[in-house]
């Protein structure tokens, strides 16, 4: 890193919502993520791009400690949310995941009613004092996910009965309902058709007003459409990070350039 970019990154850190320094992830002997220094800015959409197996999903899952669920997974380095170390021993994972929500690649609504899907998070965290408050949370989450109009007459029907795109928006509503600060999205549109994809991308753009969003995507076009900052990963290392426009029009690193122009990937 040059002195210029070093100074710039110092300034970035003050805006950073999620900040990583020298983060390494090991699956047993395999060194999956190497020395990642990355700052995610608040109220922005940051896209993580790179070829398969480059570690972007691994990094994503570090932020809300979903990697804890995997055996033999070791995370070193520091990763902080609003300045607080996420991997500190005193941190309650359950609380953390209420602040950092996640949407998965394949929509995974619970086999419950649409209402109960969205109400699940607020219920377990005790966020609503009575039924009326809960109703309001559910309705507003569904509305912000752009789903309310389509399902408001059938809230009791099972969430699994919706179309693929609707299911994913339901999962987004579910994640919003616990009022997180950060929403992580792991290739949220890869299982959806183009029309549904467009709807979700539109949603992401609306959501960034109130949430910080980190999205892993295989599609560079999607990254270009949706994000303000882009980070390019390759074989477990963070190669380059910068404003989306700059990355796609004027990448600094040869690897980045190679990936963007489709020479590999």
């Amino acid at each position: 890193m040059t002195a210029q970019t070093a100074a710039a990154s110092l300034a970035d850190r003050r805006l950073a919502k999620v900040s990583s320094r020298d983060v390494n992830v090991f699956y047993g002997e395999k060194h999956a993520l190497k020395h990642v220094d990355l700052d995610i800015r608040a109220n922005e959409v940051t896209a993580l791009i790179g070829p398969s197996g480059c570690g972007k999903s691994t990094y994503l899952r570090c932020i809300n400690r979903m990697n804890d669920l995997i055996e033999n997974c070791q995370v070193t380095g520091s990763l902080s949310l609003d300045g607080d170390d996420v991997y500190d021993k005193k941190v309650d994972v359950v609380q953390l995941r209420a602040r950092v929500g996640m949407v998965f690649q394949k929509p995974n609504p619970f086999p419950k009613s649409i209402y109960d899907n969205v109400a699940y998070g607020p219920r377990i965290h005790g966020m609503a004092r009575d039924q009326a408050e809960l109703d309001e949370v559910v309705m507003s989450s569904l509305e912000r996910a752009g789903l309310l109009a389509e399902v408001k007459d059938r809230l009791e029907e099972p969430g699994t009965g919706l179309s693929g795109g609707q299911q994913q928006r339901l999962c987004i509503a579910r994640a919003i309902a616990v009022s997180p600060e950060v929403i992580l999205m792991d290739e949220p549109c890869s299982a959806l058709d183009p029309i549904a994809t467009a709807k979700v991308e539109e949603l992401i753009d609306e959501l960034r007003e109130n949430f910080t969003i980190v999205i892993v995507t295989h599609s560079m076009q999607q990254a270009a459409r949706v994000s303000q900052r882009t980070a390019f990963f390759h074989l477990g290392e963070l190669v380059e990070v910068g404003d989306t426009e700059q990355i796609f029009t004027n990448p600094q690193h040869p690897l980045t350039q190679g990936y963007i122009t489709g020479r590999f990937g």
Binding site: N64, M66, L69, V93, V94, Q95, L96, R97, A98, G101, M102, F104, K106, N108, P109, F110, P111, K112, Y120, G121, I124, H125, C171, R174, A175, V178
Partner: peptide, 26 residues
Amino acid sequence: PNSLREGSYGLGATKSETIKQVVLPA
């Protein structure tokens, strides 16, 4: 399917909550 469990953990549920409210009903 494990995806249901992950969905629940991702929302900040404990293991017993996940089992009682997501896995067992499924």
